Amino acid sequence: MGTSVGIGFSTRRSPMEAGSEAARTALEQAGVSKPDLVIVFATVGYQQQQLIGAIREVTSGAPLCGCSGEGIIVQDAVVETNFAVGVMAIASDEVSFNITSVTGIGEDPRIAGESLAEKVCPLLAEDSRAFFLLADGLAFDFDPFVAAFEATLPASGRLPIFGGLAADNWASRKTYQYHNDEILSQGACCIVLSGNCRVAWGINHGCVPVGAKRTITRSKGNVIFEIDGTPALEVLKEYVDEDWAVKWNKATLNLGLGFRTPEHLRERYDEYYVRYIMAKDDEAGSVTIQSDVTDGTDLWIVRRDKELMLDGLKSIPRQIKEDLAGQKPKLVLQFECMGRGRVVFKEQERMDLVKSLQRDLGEELPWLGFYTYGEIGPISRYNCFHNFTSVVAVIY
């Protein structure tokens, strides 16, 4: 049989109708009645339990993993509305998928990382290839979570990690993670990929530094209190032209923090990696990002650059094709920063960008993605967290 994959998509407003339509189409394309895995990305306008319930019913209770996103990406559509759902149905006798999940990632990321690793360990095999991780974008602190996760795994189980952080259409109130019938928040879902397959990937951001180098002078975990001895918020205000109190969300769509990429990773990545400013505390003058920092770390204020983003997207297929070496992909998963969608590009531009990627890798490929609150993908052999990026993973 090999591997059969189908994609379904719906923008119906009824959660039951949307879930059923997307799931039926995915099964029809895959040519199966019960798949080995169902991956679901959906936006948050739906009653989530009803949506997932409908998909589970149509797919005969097949294992299901996924999360909410700011928008959905498939072969023929890029949709950023409150009502969109994409379903990937996979059946294979050469590749296997095991899923698990953990809750409470916002309470103690280290404990959550250890807990997920303990659940993952029994699912590992000699031919395990990668993990796909989908986590709450409003609660995730990557560094302590993944450090604890990898430290708890056996050495043979420290695999590449790909994925994205669940989003909620800019509301920053509540995101959702899907594990079979469960709808989680402050959770993380994991797919263990094993079997006769490999993963090729490409990663690119599209930001440029503005102004001089800065230094973090007071921080704790992923909270930055002072930059160059000044409250972090006061420093950031220097780079915002509009009314700060009113335009905070708009400002942070295009304004981020850039950190020097470690020397051993620069061959496969840009000079800087970028962090989204996920929260601020006006009273403390601090900002929170999605990975930890230490005092004395240099940083640059960075802005999105549209032309750099366009050029960068063209480099992703080149990166992937080098690894594919002529082999045919089985499926594609795309994790795209929410700020690389409608806030920067018009609808036709967004579609043109995605179609360009798809043409370069293969327009007939099963393709599913979502707009995220953060992206995960390895640089060389190191699992890394990204903001303001596109991460495209191809299973082949």
Rank of each mutant, 00 (worst) to 15 (best):
M1H: 11
M1D: 10
G2F: 00
S4Y: 04
G6T: 04
G8S: 11
S10P: 01
T11W: 00
M16E: 15
G19H: 03
E21D: 13
A26S: 14
L27S: 08
L27I: 09
L27A: 11
L27Q: 05
E28A: 14
G31F: 05
G31K: 10
K34V: 10
D36I: 04
L37D: 06
G53W: 05
A54L: 09
G61Y: 09
L64C: 13
Q75K: 13
D76W: 02
A84M: 06
G86N: 08
A89D: 09
I90L: 13
S96I: 01
F97Q: 05
I99C: 12
T100E: 07
T103H: 11
I105V: 14
I105H: 06
G106Q: 09
D108K: 13
I111G: 01
I111R: 10
I111Q: 12
G113E: 08
E114W: 01
S115T: 15
E118F: 01
K119F: 03
P122I: 11
L123E: 09
L123G: 08
A125F: 03
F131E: 04
L133S: 03
L134K: 04
A135E: 03
D141Q: 12
F142P: 00
V146Y: 04
T152W: 00
P154Y: 06
A155H: 08
S156T: 13
R158C: 10
R158D: 03
L159F: 07
F162H: 09
G163N: 10
L165H: 06
L165V: 07
N169D: 13
S172V: 14
T175G: 08
Y178C: 08
E182I: 01
E182G: 00
E182Y: 07
A188Q: 01
I191G: 03
V192N: 03
S194E: 07
G195V: 07
G195N: 06
R198N: 14
R198L: 06
W201V: 00
W201N: 08
H205E: 10
H205F: 00
G206I: 01
P209R: 04
V210A: 09
T215M: 12
S219D: 06
K220F: 05
G221L: 05
I224K: 08
E226Y: 04
G229N: 12
P231I: 10
E234G: 02
E238C: 10
V246W: 07
K250D: 15
L255T: 13
L265V: 08
Y272V: 03
K280N: 10
K280M: 12
Q290L: 12
S291T: 15
G296S: 08
D298F: 06
R303K: 15
R303G: 01
G312K: 03
L313P: 00
I316V: 15
L324P: 02
A325D: 13
V332T: 09
Q334L: 15
R340F: 03
F345A: 10
Q348M: 12
R350E: 14
M351P: 00
M351L: 15
V354P: 01
R359T: 13
D360K: 13
L361M: 13
L365E: 13
P366Y: 04
W367T: 10
G369C: 09
F370D: 01
F370C: 12
Y371Q: 05
I379C: 11
I379W: 02
S380W: 00
V394N: 02
I395K: 03
